[in-house]
């Protein structure tokens, strides 16, 4: 059975979406219950910069992969057999 690689990319993007949703909920809590100060602005800025940096590095690592190629599940399982 052949499975295209982009399925994993789709699952990854769903994971990224869930994590980002969590981050946005956290930001919402800060804006809803906290109050603006230099500290909150600086920490929020650092958080956004860090997230962008992680996305940038991920893009650099992931873009060379040919996501349209496929792999054979049976062949892969056999390749894991050490004997």
């Amino acid at each position: 059975m052949l499975i295209p690689y982009f399925i994993f990319l789709a699952i990854y993007l769903i994971g990224v979406f869930i994590v980002l949703l969590f981050g946005l909920s956290s930001l919402w809590h800060l804006l809803r219950y906290g109050f603006l100060s230099l500290g909150t602005v600086v920490y929020t800025f650092i958080m956004i910069v860090g997230t962008v940096l992680i996305f940038f590095l991920s893009y650099q690592v992931l873009w060379p992969i040919d996501w349209w190629q496929s792999f054979d599940v049976l062949e892969f399982i056999i390749s894991l057999n050490p004997f």
């Binding site: 994590v19 969590f22 956290s26 992680i54």
Partner: peptide
């Protein structure tokens, strides 16, 4: 590569959440 990227994104966002929780 995919798990590594997701892992570090998760660690970063959960760290942020821990700060909001503390604040």
């Amino acid at each position: 590569k995919l798990l590594g990227s997701l892992y570090y994104l998760g660690v970063w966002v959960f760290f942020w959440d821990a700060w909001v929780d503390h604040y």
